[in-house]
Amino acid sequence: MAEVLVVVEATREFGVKKVTLELLTLARELGTPSAVVLGGPGAAAQLAEKLGEYGAQKIYAAESEEIDGYLVAPKAAVLADLVRRVQPAAVLLASSQEGKEIAGRLAVKLDNGILTDVSELAADGTATQVVFAGSVIVKAKVTRGLPLVTLRPNSVTPAPAPATATVEQVEVQVADSDKLVRVVERVAEQKSARPELTEASVVVSGGRGVGSAENFALVEELADLLGGAVGASRAAVDSGFYPHQFQVGQTGKTVAPQLYIALGISGAIQHRAGMQTSKTIVAVNKDSEAPIFELADFGVVGDLFKVVPQAIEEIRKRK
């Protein structure tokens, strides 16, 4: 079976991202998964075990200071060379900012079609995308070149399929024309060990109804009890209650967790755009007419400052 290239995403702290495990699981349906690590020296060695555990037969290790030191272009260049050499059946990336950017450049380099934000990919290359705030389902296909697809996190359940991955070192030579954007500084802001918003299986979000930045501690407390990530509506972000990278919605992150809890969020169409495909939705809002209740599997009409502390106490009791 032909190789399927999976571009690996990892964090320094937590290693291989869950979405990469989803990609490997998906790749096994399409061919033989090969993981591609694009990173600094020594990056692949730390990730190899986990990648093998999820079925990577081969790991292409493209490691160089320059890959880390310059934005996106070197990664796309290395990947394009690899695709030309290996002639894979498909190239799969995460639908993260960087995943999409690498894929976009690859599409131009190879004059190849590209499909982003895909939630399902069939063996014949037919991709499913949910668009327009979760209201329309699209089936699409790349018609020029190979399936080049970025997968929306939480689309596939990662399943282990242990393999012993052989590591192949890929020679990296970055042309000056790919070294135009230098990374001067990387600053980590993740304050806690909370799961990443797009990958979390539980997300607890707060809206304008939370009232203040201090009050978000309540949202965080519930999220932590459930092992979840914290999200926020745009109104909450605009009011300075919570940082922008946690915004859920049309102009923020799209999340599809098992459980989404909306606290003090009205449920505007642009907010729904980012959470509509969650498996189970729970809402607490004092306005019984709030549109969020139209899509909530369970809703509590009430003051979140009464309901949430009681819920927290109840969960503690049961633990």
Binding site: Q97, V181, V184, E185, V187, A188, T198
Partner: peptide, 11 residues
Amino acid sequence: QTEEGYEVVTA
């Protein structure tokens, strides 16, 4: 902005 914080890049 990045997933983990922010980056400063220059060109």
